[in-house]
Design a protein around this nucleic acid. Sequence first.
DNA 1: ACGATGAATTGATATATATCATAAACTGAT
DNA 2: ATCAGTTTATGATATATATCAATTCATCGT
Lengths: 228, 228
Amino acid sequence: MNQECSCDKCELKELFFHNVTSKEIMSLCGSRVEKNYDKGDCIIEQGTTINEFIYLKSGLVKLYVTNTDGKEQILSFAKPFDFVSLLSVFSQNTYSYSVMAIDESTTCNISIHDVKKLLQNNGPFAMGILEKMSKVSDAVINESLQIRKRNLRGRIAYVLLHFRNDIYNSDYYELPVSRKEIAEYIGMTTENVIRALTEFRKDGIIKIFGKAIEIVSYKKLVQISEHG
Amino acid sequence: MNQECSCDKCELKELFFHNVTSKEIMSLCGSRVEKNYDKGDCIIEQGTTINEFIYLKSGLVKLYVTNTDGKEQILSFAKPFDFVSLLSVFSQNTYSYSVMAIDESTTCNISIHDVKKLLQNNGPFAMGILEKMSKVSDAVINESLQIRKRNLRGRIAYVLLHFRNDIYNSDYYELPVSRKEIAEYIGMTTENVIRALTEFRKDGIIKIFGKAIEIVSYKKLVQISEHG
DNA sequence: ACGATGAATTGATATATATCATAAACTGAT
DNA sequence: ATCAGTTTATGATATATATCAATTCATCGT
Protein backbone atom coordinates (compact mmCIF):
# COMPACT_ATOMS: atom_id res chain seq x y z
CA MET A 1 0.00 0.00 0.00
CA ASN A 2 2.34 2.68 1.22
CA GLN A 3 5.41 1.06 -0.18
CA GLU A 4 8.39 3.13 -1.20
CA CYS A 5 7.94 4.16 -4.79
CA SER A 6 10.15 2.10 -7.03
CA CYS A 7 8.59 2.69 -10.41
CA ASP A 8 11.79 4.01 -11.89
CA LYS A 9 13.35 0.63 -11.24
CA CYS A 10 10.34 -1.33 -12.39
CA GLU A 11 11.45 -3.65 -15.15
CA LEU A 12 8.03 -3.42 -16.71
CA LYS A 13 8.04 0.29 -17.18
CA GLU A 14 10.00 0.46 -20.38
CA LEU A 15 8.19 -2.42 -21.95
CA PHE A 16 4.94 -0.58 -21.71
CA PHE A 17 5.95 2.97 -22.07
CA HIS A 18 9.20 3.04 -23.92
CA ASN A 19 8.47 6.56 -25.10
CA VAL A 20 7.76 7.93 -21.71
CA THR A 21 10.28 9.47 -19.40
CA SER A 22 10.91 8.26 -15.92
CA LYS A 23 9.49 11.45 -14.54
CA GLU A 24 6.17 11.00 -16.26
CA ILE A 25 5.78 7.49 -14.98
CA MET A 26 6.59 8.69 -11.51
CA SER A 27 3.59 10.96 -11.62
CA LEU A 28 1.38 7.89 -11.45
CA CYS A 29 3.17 6.57 -8.46
CA GLY A 30 0.97 8.24 -5.91
CA SER A 31 -2.02 6.12 -6.74
CA ARG A 32 -0.16 2.97 -7.61
CA VAL A 33 -0.85 -0.14 -5.57
CA GLU A 34 0.59 -3.61 -5.85
CA LYS A 35 -1.55 -6.59 -4.97
CA ASN A 36 -0.70 -10.24 -4.51
CA TYR A 37 -2.95 -13.11 -5.37
CA ASP A 38 -2.84 -16.82 -4.73
CA LYS A 39 -3.79 -19.42 -7.26
CA GLY A 40 -7.56 -19.36 -7.56
CA ASP A 41 -8.02 -15.82 -6.26
CA CYS A 42 -10.34 -13.56 -8.16
CA ILE A 43 -8.65 -10.41 -9.45
CA ILE A 44 -11.53 -8.93 -11.41
CA GLU A 45 -15.18 -9.89 -11.18
CA GLN A 46 -17.38 -9.54 -14.21
CA GLY A 47 -19.94 -6.79 -13.76
CA THR A 48 -18.05 -4.76 -11.18
CA THR A 49 -17.13 -1.14 -11.74
CA ILE A 50 -13.87 -0.35 -13.46
CA ASN A 51 -11.88 2.11 -11.44
CA GLU A 52 -8.40 0.79 -11.79
CA PHE A 53 -6.05 0.16 -14.60
CA ILE A 54 -4.47 -3.20 -13.83
CA TYR A 55 -1.50 -4.94 -15.29
CA LEU A 56 0.18 -8.18 -14.43
CA LYS A 57 3.68 -7.96 -12.96
CA SER A 58 4.16 -11.65 -12.38
CA GLY A 59 2.19 -14.86 -12.45
CA LEU A 60 -0.48 -16.08 -14.80
CA VAL A 61 -4.20 -15.35 -15.05
CA LYS A 62 -7.24 -16.41 -17.03
CA LEU A 63 -9.78 -14.03 -18.55
CA TYR A 64 -13.26 -15.51 -18.74
CA VAL A 65 -16.92 -14.72 -18.96
CA THR A 66 -19.70 -16.43 -17.06
CA ASN A 67 -22.80 -17.08 -19.12
CA THR A 68 -26.33 -16.82 -17.88
CA ASP A 69 -26.48 -20.60 -17.58
CA GLY A 70 -23.46 -20.50 -15.27
CA LYS A 71 -21.02 -21.96 -17.77
CA GLU A 72 -17.68 -20.28 -18.22
CA GLN A 73 -15.91 -19.40 -21.43
CA ILE A 74 -12.21 -18.67 -21.19
CA LEU A 75 -11.17 -15.84 -23.45
CA SER A 76 -7.47 -15.93 -22.97
CA PHE A 77 -4.59 -16.56 -20.63
CA ALA A 78 -2.51 -13.52 -19.79
CA LYS A 79 1.07 -13.52 -18.75
CA PRO A 80 3.28 -10.82 -17.24
CA PHE A 81 3.49 -7.59 -19.20
CA ASP A 82 -0.05 -8.10 -20.43
CA PHE A 83 -2.59 -5.55 -19.39
CA VAL A 84 -5.25 -7.43 -17.59
CA SER A 85 -7.98 -4.86 -17.33
CA LEU A 86 -7.27 -3.69 -20.79
CA LEU A 87 -10.04 -4.46 -23.14
CA SER A 88 -12.95 -2.70 -21.51
CA VAL A 89 -11.15 0.03 -19.64
CA PHE A 90 -11.72 2.84 -22.08
CA SER A 91 -15.12 1.94 -23.36
CA GLN A 92 -17.14 0.69 -20.43
CA ASN A 93 -17.89 1.37 -16.81
CA THR A 94 -18.04 -2.23 -15.73
CA TYR A 95 -15.97 -5.27 -16.57
CA SER A 96 -17.51 -7.59 -19.14
CA TYR A 97 -15.28 -10.45 -18.04
CA SER A 98 -13.61 -11.85 -14.93
CA VAL A 99 -9.94 -12.38 -14.25
CA MET A 100 -8.63 -15.10 -11.95
CA ALA A 101 -5.09 -15.94 -10.90
CA ILE A 102 -4.19 -19.46 -12.06
CA ASP A 103 -0.79 -19.12 -10.46
CA GLU A 104 0.59 -16.86 -7.73
CA SER A 105 0.36 -13.42 -9.25
CA THR A 106 1.18 -9.81 -8.59
CA THR A 107 -0.63 -6.92 -10.19
CA CYS A 108 0.13 -3.25 -10.34
CA ASN A 109 -3.00 -1.15 -10.04
CA ILE A 110 -3.32 2.48 -10.99
CA SER A 111 -6.34 4.69 -10.61
CA ILE A 112 -8.06 4.83 -13.98
CA HIS A 113 -8.71 8.49 -13.39
CA ASP A 114 -5.00 9.22 -13.13
CA VAL A 115 -4.24 7.23 -16.24
CA LYS A 116 -6.83 9.13 -18.20
CA LYS A 117 -5.44 12.42 -16.96
CA LEU A 118 -1.96 11.46 -18.07
CA LEU A 119 -3.29 10.28 -21.43
CA GLN A 120 -4.78 13.70 -22.05
CA ASN A 121 -1.53 15.45 -21.43
CA ASN A 122 1.02 13.06 -22.77
CA GLY A 123 0.95 12.06 -26.41
CA PRO A 124 3.73 9.49 -26.36
CA PHE A 125 2.13 7.82 -23.37
CA ALA A 126 -1.17 7.66 -25.23
CA MET A 127 0.59 6.17 -28.22
CA GLY A 128 2.23 3.56 -26.01
CA ILE A 129 -1.11 2.54 -24.57
CA LEU A 130 -2.71 2.45 -28.00
CA GLU A 131 0.02 0.21 -29.33
CA LYS A 132 -0.20 -2.14 -26.40
CA MET A 133 -3.96 -2.23 -26.52
CA SER A 134 -3.92 -2.91 -30.22
CA LYS A 135 -1.50 -5.77 -29.71
CA VAL A 136 -3.48 -7.35 -26.91
CA SER A 137 -6.77 -7.13 -28.79
CA ASP A 138 -5.16 -8.50 -31.91
CA ALA A 139 -3.77 -11.41 -29.95
CA VAL A 140 -7.09 -12.28 -28.33
CA ILE A 141 -8.95 -12.09 -31.63
CA ASN A 142 -6.31 -14.10 -33.43
CA GLU A 143 -6.31 -16.76 -30.73
CA SER A 144 -10.03 -17.12 -31.12
CA LEU A 145 -9.75 -17.54 -34.89
CA GLN A 146 -6.93 -20.03 -34.52
CA ILE A 147 -8.99 -22.17 -32.18
CA ARG A 148 -12.15 -21.93 -34.23
CA LYS A 149 -10.60 -23.31 -37.38
CA ARG A 150 -9.30 -26.47 -35.72
CA ASN A 151 -10.96 -29.72 -34.70
CA LEU A 152 -10.62 -31.31 -31.26
CA ARG A 153 -7.15 -32.78 -31.79
CA GLY A 154 -5.90 -29.64 -33.50
CA ARG A 155 -7.20 -27.48 -30.68
CA ILE A 156 -5.54 -29.57 -28.00
CA ALA A 157 -2.26 -29.55 -29.93
CA TYR A 158 -2.59 -25.79 -30.31
CA VAL A 159 -3.13 -25.30 -26.59
CA LEU A 160 -0.21 -27.52 -25.63
CA LEU A 161 2.02 -25.60 -28.03
CA HIS A 162 0.67 -22.30 -26.74
CA PHE A 163 1.82 -23.15 -23.22
CA ARG A 164 5.06 -24.57 -24.57
CA ASN A 165 5.98 -21.58 -26.72
CA ASP A 166 4.28 -18.56 -25.24
CA ILE A 167 4.34 -19.27 -21.53
CA TYR A 168 6.87 -21.83 -20.34
CA ASN A 169 9.47 -22.11 -23.11
CA SER A 170 10.05 -25.71 -22.21
CA ASP A 171 9.00 -29.14 -23.45
CA TYR A 172 8.20 -30.01 -19.86
CA TYR A 173 5.75 -28.00 -17.84
CA GLU A 174 2.92 -28.15 -15.34
CA LEU A 175 -0.43 -27.30 -16.82
CA PRO A 176 -1.69 -24.30 -14.86
CA VAL A 177 -5.28 -25.27 -15.60
CA SER A 178 -7.61 -28.21 -15.16
CA ARG A 179 -8.90 -30.32 -18.05
CA LYS A 180 -12.21 -28.59 -17.51
CA GLU A 181 -10.60 -25.19 -18.00
CA ILE A 182 -8.92 -26.33 -21.19
CA ALA A 183 -12.37 -27.43 -22.33
CA GLU A 184 -13.78 -24.00 -21.48
CA TYR A 185 -10.98 -22.40 -23.45
CA ILE A 186 -11.31 -24.46 -26.62
CA GLY A 187 -15.08 -24.84 -26.50
CA MET A 188 -15.31 -28.61 -26.17
CA THR A 189 -16.25 -30.98 -23.36
CA THR A 190 -13.93 -32.02 -20.56
CA GLU A 191 -14.27 -35.67 -21.52
CA ASN A 192 -13.09 -35.02 -25.04
CA VAL A 193 -10.16 -32.96 -23.85
CA ILE A 194 -9.09 -35.92 -21.73
CA ARG A 195 -9.61 -38.36 -24.59
CA ALA A 196 -7.46 -36.30 -26.94
CA LEU A 197 -4.68 -36.01 -24.36
CA THR A 198 -4.86 -39.77 -23.78
CA GLU A 199 -4.63 -40.35 -27.53
CA PHE A 200 -1.54 -38.19 -27.79
CA ARG A 201 -0.01 -40.10 -24.90
CA LYS A 202 -0.78 -43.47 -26.48
CA ASP A 203 0.73 -42.27 -29.75
CA GLY A 204 3.91 -41.31 -27.91
CA ILE A 205 3.57 -37.62 -28.73
CA ILE A 206 3.41 -36.48 -25.12
CA LYS A 207 3.87 -37.89 -21.64
CA ILE A 208 1.39 -37.09 -18.90
CA PHE A 209 2.01 -37.07 -15.15
CA GLY A 210 -1.11 -35.58 -13.68
CA LYS A 211 -0.88 -31.88 -14.48
CA ALA A 212 2.64 -32.22 -15.83
CA ILE A 213 3.13 -32.52 -19.56
CA GLU A 214 6.22 -33.55 -21.45
CA ILE A 215 6.25 -32.94 -25.15
CA VAL A 216 8.05 -35.86 -26.71
CA SER A 217 7.48 -35.09 -30.38
CA TYR A 218 7.21 -31.37 -30.93
CA LYS A 219 7.14 -31.99 -34.67
CA LYS A 220 4.09 -34.23 -34.57
CA LEU A 221 2.29 -31.83 -32.29
CA VAL A 222 2.88 -29.01 -34.76
CA GLN A 223 1.63 -31.22 -37.57
CA ILE A 224 -1.56 -32.07 -35.68
CA SER A 225 -2.04 -28.44 -34.81
CA GLU A 226 -1.74 -27.49 -38.47
CA HIS A 227 -3.51 -30.33 -40.22
CA GLY A 228 -5.76 -31.85 -37.62
CA MET B 1 -9.14 13.11 -54.46
CA ASN B 2 -8.86 16.88 -54.47
CA GLN B 3 -12.35 17.45 -53.26
CA GLU B 4 -13.26 20.58 -51.35
CA CYS B 5 -12.65 19.94 -47.68
CA SER B 6 -15.90 19.37 -45.89
CA CYS B 7 -14.76 17.75 -42.70
CA ASP B 8 -16.37 20.37 -40.54
CA LYS B 9 -19.70 19.31 -41.95
CA CYS B 10 -18.98 15.61 -41.76
CA GLU B 11 -21.68 14.01 -39.70
CA LEU B 12 -19.22 11.37 -38.59
CA LYS B 13 -16.78 13.74 -37.04
CA GLU B 14 -18.48 14.22 -33.73
CA LEU B 15 -19.32 10.60 -33.32
CA PHE B 16 -15.67 9.69 -33.36
CA PHE B 17 -14.03 12.67 -31.84
CA HIS B 18 -16.56 14.40 -29.70
CA ASN B 19 -13.81 15.93 -27.61
CA VAL B 20 -11.96 17.41 -30.52
CA THR B 21 -12.50 20.83 -31.95
CA SER B 22 -13.35 21.47 -35.55
CA LYS B 23 -10.00 23.11 -36.07
CA GLU B 24 -8.10 20.06 -34.99
CA ILE B 25 -10.00 17.78 -37.28
CA MET B 26 -9.35 20.18 -40.12
CA SER B 27 -5.65 19.70 -39.66
CA LEU B 28 -6.09 16.16 -40.98
CA CYS B 29 -7.93 17.36 -44.01
CA GLY B 30 -4.89 17.77 -46.19
CA SER B 31 -4.22 14.09 -46.38
CA ARG B 32 -7.81 12.95 -46.32
CA VAL B 33 -9.15 10.95 -49.27
CA GLU B 34 -12.57 9.48 -49.86
CA LYS B 35 -12.90 6.26 -51.83
CA ASN B 36 -15.92 4.50 -53.29
CA TYR B 37 -16.29 0.77 -53.58
CA ASP B 38 -18.78 -1.49 -55.29
CA LYS B 39 -20.14 -4.66 -53.77
CA GLY B 40 -17.38 -7.23 -53.93
CA ASP B 41 -14.52 -4.74 -54.14
CA CYS B 42 -11.54 -5.33 -51.93
CA ILE B 43 -10.82 -2.43 -49.59
CA ILE B 44 -7.97 -3.93 -47.62
CA GLU B 45 -5.91 -6.96 -48.54
CA GLN B 46 -4.44 -9.10 -45.82
CA GLY B 47 -0.65 -8.82 -45.73
CA THR B 48 -0.35 -5.41 -47.34
CA THR B 49 1.34 -2.51 -45.64
CA ILE B 50 -0.71 -0.28 -43.39
CA ASN B 51 -0.28 3.34 -44.31
CA GLU B 52 -3.75 4.65 -43.97
CA PHE B 53 -6.25 4.97 -41.24
CA ILE B 54 -9.54 3.97 -42.83
CA TYR B 55 -13.08 4.34 -41.60
CA LEU B 56 -16.39 3.53 -43.17
CA LYS B 57 -18.62 6.46 -44.07
CA SER B 58 -21.38 4.44 -45.68
CA GLY B 59 -22.10 0.92 -46.81
CA LEU B 60 -21.27 -2.42 -45.26
CA VAL B 61 -18.08 -4.49 -45.24
CA LYS B 62 -16.81 -7.82 -44.03
CA LEU B 63 -13.54 -8.35 -42.18
CA TYR B 64 -12.01 -11.74 -42.84
CA VAL B 65 -8.80 -13.73 -42.82
CA THR B 66 -7.70 -16.19 -45.47
CA ASN B 67 -6.11 -19.32 -44.07
CA THR B 68 -3.17 -21.14 -45.58
CA ASP B 69 -5.56 -23.73 -47.00
CA GLY B 70 -7.43 -20.98 -48.83
CA LYS B 71 -10.49 -21.06 -46.60
CA GLU B 72 -11.87 -17.81 -45.29
CA GLN B 73 -12.97 -16.97 -41.77
CA ILE B 74 -15.17 -13.94 -41.35
CA LEU B 75 -14.32 -11.98 -38.23
CA SER B 76 -17.03 -9.42 -38.29
CA PHE B 77 -19.29 -7.23 -40.36
CA ALA B 78 -18.67 -3.52 -40.01
CA LYS B 79 -21.16 -0.80 -40.58
CA PRO B 80 -20.75 2.97 -40.90
CA PHE B 81 -18.99 4.67 -38.01
CA ASP B 82 -16.96 1.52 -37.41
CA PHE B 83 -13.28 1.89 -37.95
CA VAL B 84 -12.31 -0.58 -40.55
CA SER B 85 -8.55 -0.56 -40.36
CA LEU B 86 -8.71 -0.35 -36.66
CA LEU B 87 -7.47 -3.40 -34.97
CA SER B 88 -3.95 -3.67 -36.33
CA VAL B 89 -3.23 -0.05 -37.10
CA PHE B 90 -1.22 0.78 -34.02
CA SER B 91 0.52 -2.49 -33.46
CA GLN B 92 1.51 -3.83 -36.85
CA ASN B 93 2.97 -2.81 -40.16
CA THR B 94 0.77 -5.04 -42.29
CA TYR B 95 -2.88 -5.95 -42.15
CA SER B 96 -3.62 -9.31 -40.61
CA TYR B 97 -7.03 -9.44 -42.24
CA SER B 98 -8.82 -8.36 -45.40
CA VAL B 99 -11.79 -6.05 -45.78
CA MET B 100 -14.29 -6.37 -48.62
CA ALA B 101 -17.32 -4.25 -49.45
CA ILE B 102 -20.46 -6.39 -49.29
CA ASP B 103 -22.52 -3.40 -50.32
CA GLU B 104 -21.68 -0.12 -52.06
CA SER B 105 -19.40 1.61 -49.61
CA THR B 106 -17.49 4.82 -49.08
CA THR B 107 -14.43 5.10 -46.91
CA CYS B 108 -12.54 8.07 -45.58
CA ASN B 109 -8.80 7.48 -45.59
CA ILE B 110 -6.26 9.45 -43.63
CA SER B 111 -2.52 9.03 -43.67
CA ILE B 112 -1.59 6.97 -40.64
CA HIS B 113 1.41 9.18 -40.15
CA ASP B 114 -0.77 12.24 -39.75
CA VAL B 115 -3.06 10.48 -37.32
CA LYS B 116 -0.12 9.45 -35.20
CA LYS B 117 1.22 12.97 -35.23
CA LEU B 118 -2.11 14.32 -34.05
CA LEU B 119 -2.33 11.64 -31.38
CA GLN B 120 0.98 12.75 -29.95
CA ASN B 121 -0.13 16.34 -29.65
CA ASN B 122 -3.78 16.03 -28.79
CA GLY B 123 -4.80 14.23 -25.65
CA PRO B 124 -8.57 14.36 -26.12
CA PHE B 125 -8.18 13.05 -29.65
CA ALA B 126 -6.09 10.18 -28.33
CA MET B 127 -8.75 9.45 -25.72
CA GLY B 128 -11.41 9.42 -28.41
CA ILE B 129 -9.48 6.92 -30.48
CA LEU B 130 -8.77 4.78 -27.43
CA GLU B 131 -12.45 4.69 -26.53
CA LYS B 132 -13.51 3.81 -30.02
CA MET B 133 -10.83 1.18 -30.38
CA SER B 134 -11.76 -0.34 -27.06
CA LYS B 135 -15.39 -0.51 -28.12
CA VAL B 136 -14.67 -2.10 -31.49
CA SER B 137 -12.33 -4.71 -30.03
CA ASP B 138 -14.82 -5.47 -27.30
CA ALA B 139 -17.55 -5.95 -29.87
CA VAL B 140 -15.49 -8.27 -32.06
CA ILE B 141 -14.41 -10.37 -29.11
CA ASN B 142 -17.90 -10.51 -27.69
CA GLU B 143 -19.35 -11.52 -31.04
CA SER B 144 -16.91 -14.37 -31.21
CA LEU B 145 -17.86 -15.57 -27.74
CA GLN B 146 -21.55 -15.28 -28.51
CA ILE B 147 -21.19 -17.43 -31.60
CA ARG B 148 -18.95 -19.99 -29.96
CA LYS B 149 -21.38 -20.80 -27.20
CA ARG B 150 -24.26 -21.60 -29.55
CA ASN B 151 -25.10 -24.63 -31.66
CA LEU B 152 -26.00 -24.47 -35.35
CA ARG B 153 -29.59 -23.30 -34.89
CA GLY B 154 -28.61 -20.83 -32.20
CA ARG B 155 -25.87 -19.39 -34.38
CA ILE B 156 -28.17 -18.92 -37.35
CA ALA B 157 -30.78 -17.28 -35.15
CA TYR B 158 -28.08 -15.05 -33.70
CA VAL B 159 -26.91 -13.98 -37.16
CA LEU B 160 -30.43 -13.25 -38.39
CA LEU B 161 -31.05 -11.16 -35.29
CA HIS B 162 -27.72 -9.43 -35.70
CA PHE B 163 -28.70 -8.21 -39.16
CA ARG B 164 -32.17 -7.41 -37.90
CA ASN B 165 -31.13 -5.38 -34.89
CA ASP B 166 -27.68 -4.02 -35.59
CA ILE B 167 -27.76 -3.36 -39.32
CA TYR B 168 -31.18 -3.07 -40.93
CA ASN B 169 -33.60 -2.33 -38.08
CA SER B 170 -36.33 -4.14 -39.93
CA ASP B 171 -37.98 -7.53 -39.89
CA TYR B 172 -37.58 -7.63 -43.64
CA TYR B 173 -34.17 -7.29 -45.25
CA GLU B 174 -31.92 -8.56 -48.00
CA LEU B 175 -29.07 -10.67 -46.72
CA PRO B 176 -25.90 -8.88 -47.82
CA VAL B 177 -24.00 -12.15 -47.81
CA SER B 178 -24.23 -15.61 -49.34
CA ARG B 179 -25.03 -18.74 -47.36
CA LYS B 180 -21.38 -19.62 -47.75
CA GLU B 181 -20.34 -16.38 -46.10
CA ILE B 182 -22.71 -16.97 -43.23
CA ALA B 183 -21.04 -20.35 -42.87
CA GLU B 184 -17.61 -18.71 -42.83
CA TYR B 185 -18.84 -16.34 -40.17
CA ILE B 186 -20.34 -18.88 -37.80
CA GLY B 187 -17.83 -21.64 -38.46
CA MET B 188 -20.14 -24.28 -39.91
CA THR B 189 -20.69 -25.70 -43.38
CA THR B 190 -22.75 -24.04 -46.08
CA GLU B 191 -25.08 -27.03 -46.29
CA ASN B 192 -25.93 -26.82 -42.62
CA VAL B 193 -26.55 -23.09 -42.83
CA ILE B 194 -29.05 -23.78 -45.59
CA ARG B 195 -30.65 -26.61 -43.67
CA ALA B 196 -31.12 -24.47 -40.58
CA LEU B 197 -32.67 -21.67 -42.63
CA THR B 198 -34.99 -24.18 -44.28
CA GLU B 199 -35.98 -25.54 -40.89
CA PHE B 200 -36.83 -22.06 -39.64
CA ARG B 201 -38.88 -21.50 -42.78
CA LYS B 202 -40.76 -24.77 -42.36
CA ASP B 203 -41.43 -23.90 -38.74
CA GLY B 204 -42.90 -20.59 -39.84
CA ILE B 205 -40.31 -18.54 -38.00
CA ILE B 206 -39.00 -16.81 -41.10
CA LYS B 207 -39.86 -16.45 -44.76
CA ILE B 208 -37.19 -16.76 -47.44
CA PHE B 209 -37.20 -15.22 -50.91
CA GLY B 210 -33.72 -15.86 -52.21
CA LYS B 211 -31.52 -13.43 -50.33
CA ALA B 212 -34.48 -11.69 -48.76
CA ILE B 213 -35.48 -12.65 -45.25
CA GLU B 214 -38.65 -11.85 -43.41
CA ILE B 215 -38.71 -12.48 -39.71
CA VAL B 216 -42.18 -13.74 -38.87
CA SER B 217 -41.67 -14.67 -35.24
CA TYR B 218 -39.07 -12.48 -33.64
CA LYS B 219 -39.88 -14.03 -30.30
CA LYS B 220 -39.13 -17.59 -31.39
CA LEU B 221 -35.93 -16.48 -33.05
CA VAL B 222 -34.77 -14.89 -29.82
CA GLN B 223 -35.67 -18.04 -27.95
CA ILE B 224 -33.68 -20.21 -30.35
CA SER B 225 -30.78 -17.80 -30.16
CA GLU B 226 -30.80 -18.04 -26.39
CA HIS B 227 -31.62 -21.67 -25.76
CA GLY B 228 -30.65 -23.49 -28.95
C1' DA C 1 -5.82 -40.62 9.28
C1' DC C 2 -10.51 -39.67 7.67
C1' DG C 3 -14.16 -38.89 4.85
C1' DA C 4 -15.78 -35.67 1.50
C1' DT C 5 -15.56 -33.21 -2.50
C1' DG C 6 -14.04 -32.41 -6.86
C1' DA C 7 -10.78 -33.94 -10.89
C1' DA C 8 -9.47 -37.23 -14.13
C1' DT C 9 -10.57 -41.27 -16.68
C1' DT C 10 -12.95 -44.69 -19.52
C1' DG C 11 -16.77 -46.83 -21.96
C1' DA C 12 -21.35 -47.01 -24.20
C1' DT C 13 -24.49 -44.50 -26.62
C1' DA C 14 -26.91 -40.48 -28.59
C1' DT C 15 -26.73 -36.43 -31.21
C1' DA C 16 -24.89 -32.92 -34.07
C1' DT C 17 -22.34 -31.74 -37.75
C1' DA C 18 -19.49 -32.73 -41.94
C1' DT C 19 -18.96 -34.88 -46.21
C1' DC C 20 -20.29 -36.49 -50.60
C1' DA C 21 -23.38 -36.67 -54.40
C1' DT C 22 -26.79 -34.68 -57.19
C1' DA C 23 -29.82 -31.36 -59.10
C1' DA C 24 -32.33 -27.12 -59.60
C1' DA C 25 -32.11 -22.14 -59.64
C1' DC C 26 -29.71 -18.20 -60.46
C1' DT C 27 -25.91 -14.99 -62.56
C1' DG C 28 -22.89 -13.06 -65.74
C1' DA C 29 -20.57 -13.03 -70.06
C1' DT C 30 -20.62 -13.79 -74.80
C1' DA D 1 -30.74 -16.94 -75.94
C1' DT D 2 -27.10 -19.85 -74.45
C1' DC D 3 -23.53 -21.62 -71.95
C1' DA D 4 -20.52 -21.91 -67.88
C1' DG D 5 -20.00 -21.19 -63.41
C1' DT D 6 -21.73 -20.37 -58.98
C1' DT D 7 -25.24 -20.46 -55.42
C1' DT D 8 -28.94 -22.75 -53.29
C1' DA D 9 -31.05 -26.88 -52.04
C1' DT D 10 -31.85 -31.78 -50.53
C1' DG D 11 -30.80 -36.55 -49.34
C1' DA D 12 -27.79 -40.41 -47.79
C1' DT D 13 -24.08 -41.48 -45.14
C1' DA D 14 -19.85 -40.92 -42.37
C1' DT D 15 -17.61 -38.78 -38.70
C1' DA D 16 -16.94 -35.97 -34.74
C1' DT D 17 -18.47 -34.53 -30.63
C1' DA D 18 -21.66 -34.51 -26.60
C1' DT D 19 -23.99 -36.86 -23.09
C1' DC D 20 -24.62 -40.14 -19.51
C1' DA D 21 -22.88 -43.46 -16.28
C1' DA D 22 -19.50 -45.48 -13.47
C1' DT D 23 -14.83 -45.67 -11.39
C1' DT D 24 -10.53 -44.33 -9.79
C1' DC D 25 -7.57 -40.72 -8.20
C1' DA D 26 -6.15 -36.54 -5.90
C1' DT D 27 -6.83 -32.88 -2.58
C1' DC D 28 -8.54 -30.37 1.27
C1' DG D 29 -10.24 -29.55 5.80
C1' DT D 30 -11.41 -31.41 10.17
